[in-house]
Protein backbone atom coordinates (compact mmCIF):
# COMPACT_ATOMS: atom_id res chain seq x y z
CA UNK A 1 0.00 0.00 0.00
CA UNK A 2 1.36 3.39 -0.90
CA UNK A 3 1.46 6.24 1.54
CA UNK A 4 -1.36 8.03 -0.28
CA UNK A 5 -3.52 4.94 -0.24
CA UNK A 6 -2.88 4.49 3.45
CA UNK A 7 -3.88 8.05 4.20
CA UNK A 8 -6.99 7.80 2.03
CA UNK A 9 -8.13 4.60 3.71
CA UNK A 10 -7.49 5.75 7.26
CA UNK A 11 -8.25 9.42 7.07
CA UNK A 12 -10.94 9.33 9.72
CA UNK A 13 -8.53 7.93 12.30
CA UNK A 14 -5.82 10.31 11.17
CA UNK A 15 -8.05 13.38 11.41
CA UNK A 16 -9.26 12.17 14.76
CA UNK A 17 -5.71 11.74 16.04
CA UNK A 18 -4.79 15.16 14.69
CA UNK A 19 -7.70 16.83 16.46
CA UNK A 20 -6.86 15.10 19.73
CA UNK A 21 -3.20 16.09 19.31
CA UNK A 22 -4.26 19.68 18.74
CA UNK A 23 -6.62 19.60 21.72
CA UNK A 24 -4.09 18.33 24.22
CA UNK A 25 -1.49 20.82 22.98
CA UNK A 26 -3.88 23.75 23.13
CA UNK A 27 -5.10 22.73 26.56
CA UNK A 28 -1.58 22.45 27.89
CA UNK A 29 -0.56 25.80 26.42
CA UNK A 30 -3.65 27.48 27.89
CA UNK A 31 -2.89 26.15 31.36
CA UNK A 32 0.79 27.03 30.95
CA UNK A 33 -0.12 30.61 29.96
CA UNK A 34 -2.17 31.04 33.12
CA UNK A 35 0.59 29.63 35.32
CA UNK A 36 3.56 31.11 33.42
CA UNK A 37 2.20 34.62 32.99
CA UNK A 38 1.02 34.59 36.59
CA UNK A 39 4.42 33.45 37.77
CA UNK A 40 6.06 36.15 35.65
CA UNK A 41 3.78 38.88 37.01
CA UNK A 42 4.46 37.79 40.57
CA UNK A 43 8.23 37.64 40.23
CA UNK A 44 9.37 40.19 37.63
CA UNK A 45 10.04 42.93 40.18
CA UNK A 46 12.43 40.88 42.30
CA UNK A 47 15.50 39.77 40.42
CA UNK A 48 16.22 36.78 42.68
CA UNK A 49 12.64 35.51 42.51
CA UNK A 50 12.65 36.03 38.74
CA UNK A 51 15.92 34.10 38.44
CA UNK A 52 14.49 31.35 40.62
CA UNK A 53 11.38 31.12 38.43
CA UNK A 54 13.40 30.86 35.21
CA UNK A 55 15.98 28.40 36.52
CA UNK A 56 13.29 26.16 38.03
CA UNK A 57 11.15 26.07 34.92
CA UNK A 58 14.38 25.71 32.91
CA UNK A 59 15.33 22.65 34.94
CA UNK A 60 11.92 21.14 34.12
CA UNK A 61 12.76 21.40 30.46
CA UNK A 62 15.95 19.41 30.87
CA UNK A 63 14.02 16.43 32.28
CA UNK A 64 13.61 13.96 29.41
CA UNK A 65 9.96 13.51 28.44
CA UNK A 66 10.10 9.72 28.63
CA UNK A 67 11.51 9.98 32.13
CA UNK A 68 8.85 12.45 33.26
CA UNK A 69 6.05 10.39 31.77
CA UNK A 70 7.49 7.25 33.34
CA UNK A 71 7.39 8.94 36.73
CA UNK A 72 4.01 10.62 36.23
CA UNK A 73 2.16 7.40 35.59
CA UNK A 74 2.79 6.44 39.19
CA UNK A 75 0.43 9.13 40.58
CA UNK A 76 -1.76 9.80 37.50
CA UNK A 77 -2.06 6.40 35.82
CA UNK A 78 -2.19 5.98 32.06
CA UNK A 79 -4.10 8.19 29.60
CA UNK A 80 -4.55 11.92 28.97
CA UNK A 81 -3.77 13.22 32.43
CA UNK A 82 -0.02 12.43 32.72
CA UNK A 83 0.48 13.74 29.17
CA UNK A 84 -1.31 16.98 29.91
CA UNK A 85 0.67 17.51 33.11
CA UNK A 86 3.96 16.79 31.36
CA UNK A 87 3.16 19.16 28.50
CA UNK A 88 2.26 21.97 30.91
CA UNK A 89 5.56 21.45 32.71
CA UNK A 90 7.50 21.68 29.45
CA UNK A 91 5.61 24.74 28.24
CA UNK A 92 6.36 26.80 31.34
CA UNK A 93 9.90 28.07 30.70
CA UNK A 94 9.48 30.07 27.47
CA UNK A 95 6.25 31.67 28.68
CA UNK A 96 7.50 32.49 32.17
CA UNK A 97 10.85 33.79 30.97
CA UNK A 98 9.38 35.92 28.21
CA UNK A 99 6.78 37.34 30.60
CA UNK A 100 9.51 38.37 33.02
CA UNK A 101 11.75 39.79 30.31
CA UNK A 102 8.85 41.54 28.61
CA UNK A 103 7.56 43.14 31.81
CA UNK A 104 11.03 44.19 32.91
CA UNK A 105 11.96 45.75 29.61
CA UNK A 106 9.00 48.09 29.32
CA UNK A 107 10.39 51.59 28.80
CA UNK A 108 10.76 53.13 32.28
CA UNK A 109 9.65 56.49 30.88
CA UNK A 110 6.25 55.02 30.02
CA UNK A 111 5.88 53.58 33.51
CA UNK A 112 6.92 56.86 35.07
CA UNK A 113 4.44 58.75 32.90
CA UNK A 114 1.71 56.35 34.05
CA UNK A 115 2.68 56.70 37.70
CA UNK A 116 2.89 60.44 37.20
CA UNK A 117 -0.71 60.64 36.05
CA UNK A 118 -1.75 58.84 39.21
CA UNK A 119 -2.15 55.21 38.11
CA UNK A 120 -1.59 52.68 40.87
CA UNK A 121 1.11 50.05 40.53
CA UNK A 122 -1.52 47.41 39.72
CA UNK A 123 -3.12 49.63 37.08
CA UNK A 124 0.28 50.32 35.54
CA UNK A 125 0.89 46.56 35.37
CA UNK A 126 -2.45 45.76 33.73
CA UNK A 127 -2.89 48.85 31.54
CA UNK A 128 0.69 49.58 30.51
CA UNK A 129 3.17 46.82 31.22
CA UNK A 130 1.14 43.81 30.09
CA UNK A 131 -0.05 45.28 26.77
CA UNK A 132 3.45 46.53 25.99
CA UNK A 133 5.04 43.20 26.95
CA UNK A 134 2.42 41.18 25.13
CA UNK A 135 4.36 40.67 21.86
CA UNK A 136 7.28 39.25 23.83
CA UNK A 137 5.04 37.05 25.98
CA UNK A 138 3.25 35.77 22.94
CA UNK A 139 6.53 34.92 21.24
CA UNK A 140 7.18 32.71 24.27
CA UNK A 141 3.77 31.08 23.78
CA UNK A 142 4.73 30.25 20.21
CA UNK A 143 8.02 28.67 21.26
CA UNK A 144 6.25 26.65 23.96
CA UNK A 145 3.73 25.38 21.47
CA UNK A 146 6.42 24.24 19.06
CA UNK A 147 8.25 22.41 21.84
CA UNK A 148 5.30 20.52 23.29
CA UNK A 149 3.64 19.62 20.01
CA UNK A 150 6.57 17.29 19.34
CA UNK A 151 6.75 16.02 22.90
CA UNK A 152 3.05 15.18 22.78
CA UNK A 153 3.94 12.41 20.32
CA UNK A 154 5.64 10.50 23.11
CA UNK A 155 2.43 10.73 25.12
CA UNK A 156 1.03 7.83 23.12
CA UNK A 157 3.53 5.69 24.97
CA UNK A 158 1.47 6.10 28.14
CA UNK A 159 -1.76 5.71 26.15
CA UNK A 160 -2.19 9.43 25.67
CA UNK A 161 -4.07 10.89 22.70
CA UNK A 162 -2.80 12.18 19.37
CA UNK A 163 -0.66 11.44 16.35
CA UNK A 164 1.92 9.66 18.47
CA UNK A 165 -0.40 6.66 18.33
CA UNK A 166 0.33 6.36 14.62
CA UNK A 167 4.05 6.23 15.36
CA UNK A 168 3.77 3.74 18.18
CA UNK A 169 1.37 1.54 16.19
CA UNK A 170 3.91 1.50 13.38
CA UNK A 171 6.64 0.65 15.84
CA UNK A 172 4.50 -2.10 17.36
CA UNK A 173 4.11 -3.69 13.94
CA UNK A 174 7.75 -3.12 13.10
CA UNK A 175 8.44 -4.22 9.54
CA UNK A 176 4.75 -5.01 9.01
CA UNK A 177 2.70 -3.99 6.00
CA UNK A 178 1.81 -0.46 7.06
CA UNK A 179 4.40 0.31 9.68
CA UNK A 180 6.35 2.79 7.56
CA UNK A 181 3.14 4.49 6.41
CA UNK A 182 1.95 4.85 9.97
CA UNK A 183 5.19 6.28 11.30
CA UNK A 184 5.39 8.63 8.34
CA UNK A 185 1.81 9.76 8.88
CA UNK A 186 2.42 10.43 12.53
CA UNK A 187 5.70 12.28 12.00
CA UNK A 188 4.64 14.37 9.02
CA UNK A 189 1.27 15.01 10.60
CA UNK A 190 2.94 16.51 13.64
CA UNK A 191 5.26 18.67 11.53
CA UNK A 192 2.35 19.98 9.47
CA UNK A 193 0.28 20.55 12.58
CA UNK A 194 3.18 22.46 14.12
CA UNK A 195 3.49 24.69 11.06
CA UNK A 196 -0.24 25.39 10.90
CA UNK A 197 -0.36 26.00 14.63
CA UNK A 198 2.49 28.49 14.41
CA UNK A 199 0.86 30.25 11.48
CA UNK A 200 -2.40 30.53 13.40
CA UNK A 201 -0.59 31.84 16.46
CA UNK A 202 1.21 34.40 14.31
CA UNK A 203 -2.22 35.60 13.21
CA UNK A 204 -3.47 35.74 16.79
CA UNK A 205 -0.33 37.66 17.79
CA UNK A 206 -1.08 40.23 15.11
CA UNK A 207 -4.69 40.58 16.16
CA UNK A 208 -3.92 40.90 19.86
CA UNK A 209 -1.03 43.33 19.58
CA UNK A 210 -1.77 47.04 19.71
CA UNK A 211 -1.49 48.64 16.28
CA UNK A 212 0.92 51.14 17.75
CA UNK A 213 3.41 48.38 18.54
CA UNK A 214 3.45 46.67 15.17
CA UNK A 215 6.59 47.09 13.20
Amino acid sequence: MTFAEYVRENWITIVNDTILHFDVTLGAVAIAVVIGVGLGMLTYRHSTLAALATTTTGAFLTIPSVALLGVLIAPFGLGVLPVLVALVVYALLPITRNTIVGLQEVDPAVVEAGRGMGLSRTRVLWDLRLPLAWPVIFAGVRVSTQIIIGIAAIGAWVQGPGLGNQIFNGLGRFGGANSLNQVLTGTLGIVVLALLFDLALAGVARLTTSRGLRA
Partner: peptide, 10 residues
Protein backbone atom coordinates in the same frame (compact mmCIF):
# COMPACT_ATOMS: atom_id res chain seq x y z
CA UNK B 1 8.70 20.38 15.72
CA UNK B 2 9.87 17.05 14.30
CA UNK B 3 9.12 14.54 17.05
CA UNK B 4 12.30 12.71 17.95
CA UNK B 5 10.40 9.47 18.39
CA UNK B 6 9.13 9.74 14.80
CA UNK B 7 12.61 10.42 13.45
CA UNK B 8 14.17 7.48 15.26
CA UNK B 9 11.50 4.98 14.27
CA UNK B 10 11.47 6.22 10.68
Amino acid sequence: AIPSIGLIVL
